[in-house]
Simulated assay, not measured.
Amino acid sequence: MIFRQLFETDTSTYTYLLGCERTRRAVLIDPVDTQVGKYEDLLRQLDLRLVYTLETHVHADHVTAAGLLRERLQSRSVVHRDAGARCADLLVTDGVPLQVGDLEFEVRHTPGHTAGCVSYVMSDRVFTGDALFIAGCGRTDFQQGDAGLLYDSIHRRLFTLPPDTLVFPGHDYHGNTVSTIGREMARNPRVGGGRSQEEFIALMSELELDYPKDIDRALPANQACGLRPAAGGAPRVRCP
């Protein structure tokens, strides 16, 4: 497997490139629109063909590159059906398998940060988006956020994975790159160490976080796969 962890500094967003060495087919998880040129260069350098962009959710802090990459490289966008992005080529649900050459992913619905959050599970790793961070988790005070639901998603859908499963989050603000399920279960200060659901809900309600500075731009753009809505307000959709 070809694997690259890419970092967008303005929003501290991780994007992941995974490629099949046999077929040269590849996916990008949570691509950012300002990085499209870098993705294209990297794909050429590695002799890979992008077939899917996988979104962990509809983001509020950056604009996805899914629509631009679809136009330029004919990739197909993947989003959960509850995310509110009907522009996607594939609207997936919990348990859906995705295969790209020899790469196998399971879509695991992990709502709570938003209603349409998913994690992408592989045999040895999981891409958790904004559900579970390294020593943290996503906020729950907007976009259908629900602290109790996020707690359940993490404990029932992620902490049930093998403890040595690698955790690759959607963001990190402290220079961390990877953790494990076992480490987060034991040490995560928000959801680990035996913290109860009631304690977690109280903690999240007391955070008093600032209004997301880019949500008014990013949210409608991401509901249109990162492209401007066409005349009449409908997003542009390419038929696969």
Score class of each variant (00 low, 15 high):
residue 172 D to V: 07
residue 222 N to A: 05
residue 187 R to C: 14
residue 169 P to C: 09
residue 9 T to R: 15
residue 48 L to Y: 06
residue 158 L to I: 12
residue 137 C to E: 01
residue 62 H to M: 13
residue 32 V to C: 09
residue 38 K to Q: 07
residue 85 A to E: 09
residue 108 R to C: 11
residue 16 Y to V: 15
residue 1 M to L: 14
residue 134 I to Y: 05
residue 27 V to E: 00
residue 185 M to E: 09
residue 41 D to E: 10
residue 167 V to Q: 05
residue 34 T to V: 11
residue 42 L to T: 03
residue 220 P to Y: 00
residue 175 G to P: 04
residue 238 R to F: 10
residue 233 G to K: 13
residue 40 E to G: 06
residue 95 G to P: 12
residue 206 E to G: 15
residue 51 V to C: 04
residue 19 G to W: 07
residue 48 L to Q: 01
residue 155 H to S: 08
residue 224 A to K: 02
residue 158 L to A: 00
residue 134 I to W: 06
residue 18 L to S: 02
residue 122 M to Q: 08
residue 122 M to I: 10
residue 130 D to G: 03
residue 77 S to E: 11
residue 59 H to N: 05
residue 206 E to M: 15
residue 177 T to A: 13
residue 2 I to S: 06
residue 163 P to M: 12
residue 50 L to V: 00
residue 155 H to K: 15
residue 216 D to Y: 04
residue 62 H to V: 09
residue 148 G to D: 02
residue 216 D to H: 10
residue 73 L to K: 07
residue 160 T to Y: 11
residue 142 F to N: 12
residue 229 P to H: 03
residue 146 D to K: 11
residue 102 D to K: 14
residue 64 T to C: 09
residue 183 R to C: 02
residue 25 R to E: 06
residue 75 S to Q: 11
residue 55 E to L: 15
residue 218 A to M: 11
residue 233 G to A: 13
residue 92 V to M: 12
residue 48 L to S: 01
residue 196 S to I: 14
residue 132 L to N: 02
residue 52 Y to G: 01
residue 84 G to W: 00
residue 219 L to F: 03
residue 119 S to T: 15
residue 52 Y to K: 14
residue 239 C to G: 13
residue 145 G to I: 12
residue 177 T to K: 11
residue 132 L to Y: 04
residue 174 H to Y: 09
residue 215 I to G: 01
residue 215 I to P: 03
residue 48 L to V: 00
residue 197 Q to Y: 05
residue 43 L to W: 07
residue 227 L to Q: 02
residue 149 L to R: 15
residue 65 A to H: 00
residue 158 L to Q: 04
residue 55 E to V: 12
residue 71 E to Y: 12
residue 136 G to A: 08
residue 148 G to V: 10
residue 59 H to P: 01
residue 132 L to H: 05
residue 232 G to C: 10
residue 129 G to K: 03
residue 95 G to I: 15
residue 21 E to T: 00
residue 227 L to S: 01
residue 166 L to F: 04
residue 234 A to C: 14
residue 167 V to D: 02
residue 115 A to S: 06
residue 211 Y to C: 12
residue 4 R to P: 07
residue 204 M to Y: 00
